[in-house]
């Protein structure tokens, strides 16, 4: 609540918004025809799950850039239960609800 607004920062923020547009539509911009080789097309089917996993796993097993050394970590059990609930109910909302139902008590009551 302390900082004041300055134009330089706002300009940087607008710049970041432009970066978002450019990166997300990077290969849409040029109309020039090109085709992906077959191996690249096959490879792309493994990319989405790889990207998700590369984001998720470090968030679950690392703290401040270090692998956690204790199994007393609410995130581990929250994620495991969330995944189990997903396979049971086939539904992402249940996965979130089930995972949080395990994560919050462990974290807030036991301090894990």
């Amino acid at each position: 609540m302390s900082a004041s607004t300055d134009l330089w920062t706002l300009a940087v923020i607008v710049g970041l918004a432009v970066v978002t547009v450019v990166t997300r539509s990077f290969f849409f911009i040029s109309k020039k025809d090109f085709h992906l080789p077959g191996w690249a097309q096959r490879g792309l089917q493994y990319a989405p799950i790889a990207a998700l996993s590369a984001v998720i796993i470090p968030e679950i097993v690392m703290t401040q850039g270090q692998l956690i050394s204790s199994l007393k970590d609410a995130r581990l059990y929250g994620a495991m239960v969330g995944a189990a609930v997903f396979y049971w109910r086939r539904d992402t909302l249940s996965c979130i609800a089930g995972g949080m139902a395990v994560y919050l008590p462990l974290r807030l009551l036991l301090g894990w």
């Binding site: 089917q45 989405p48 799950i49 994620a79 992402t92 996965c95 949080m100």
Partner: peptide, 24 residues
């Protein structure tokens, strides 16, 4: 953490083949 759980659910739904699980 709810955001991470949303990603977990989606990752599970994508794991439709052995090689995709390997990829994850």
């Amino acid at each position: 953490f709810a955001g991470i759980l949303a990603l977990v659910g989606i990752a599970c739904s994508l794991a439709t083949s052995q090689l995709r699980t390997v990829s994850a």
